[in-house]
Amino acid sequence: MPKKVLVIAEQRDGKLRQVALEALGAARTIADGGSIVSVVIGNQVKDAASELAQHPQDKVIAIEGASLANYDSEHYYLALGPVLDEVQPDVVVLGHTASGRDLAPKISAALDAPQVSDVVSLEVQGGEVLFKRPIYAGKAFETKRVLSTPYVVTVRPNNLAPDAEQGGSAEVDVRAFDEPADVKTRVVDVQKKASTGRDLTEARVVVSGGRGVKSADGFKPLYELADVLDAAVGASRAACDAGYCDYSLQIGQTGKVVTPDVYIACGISGAIQHLAGMSQSKLIIAINKDAEAPIFEIADYGVVGDLFEIVPKLTEKLREKMAAARA
């Protein structure tokens, strides 16, 4: 049945994020020939909105305001509220990102609607949309069906195909947002991430360290390898608990779940809770001194050896190969 779908399209520093197109792709499937309206919220988002409007849809709304420069649930919800009233969507689709997972439950509560979070695939069966999502951080998957509209869906980045339809000509409706006087939350400071840091959940390659890295300094060769591969650096809980790195790097059932093309586990034994966070990676490489480490049971390629010996050599060889390929 055709539906009216609202997409909250995410941007970062004025650039449309890939997950926005993935959400739009999901919206197109769900809409089933119905209407699609997208909203981009931020400080200066006209360009992102115009880019989005190249994909066919009924309307793209850009909401701009200085107080929207950094994501905050209250401000973004206040900016979005009038659009929800106006569009009266049957379905709202967002990315399951730091901001999407924060904003979606507010929308769901406001609409008294059910929500399916963190969807990794969807299919239409007998006119009904079925949503697949991980539970227990990917130790299992559940398929869900929604019993009423309106409802809200958040989609996991890097899992759904981005919308491929071209030739859109929807108008971009630009609206100004003025911060009301009585807001209760305010972003007072933002430290931008270090330029070396790729976002863990979006990186194509993840280089991850465990207890075997032995110290904060021990992460250095991992960062060098990551640099060559344009990879993000992650860690196991053991490494975080030992204070070798920040908890924001933690991968596992507690921590982040990653599904990169290549996951390189260095000095990680492979506790069940860690495996939950990375075992859906396409290719897994493990480097560990202990030939009996459980990580080898799921690794596509295993190297029994000293990471401090192997990793720098690997970095060196990759540099050479890449230089040769460019030459």
């Binding site: 079925l130 299992a140 998957f141 559940e142 398929t143 069906r145 019993l147 799921i298 690794a299 295993g302």
Partner: peptide, 15 residues
Amino acid sequence: KVERVEVTLPPKRQA
């Protein structure tokens, strides 16, 4: 307002 239709386990990875 939502219903679980099915639970599955991910395919086992082989060493």
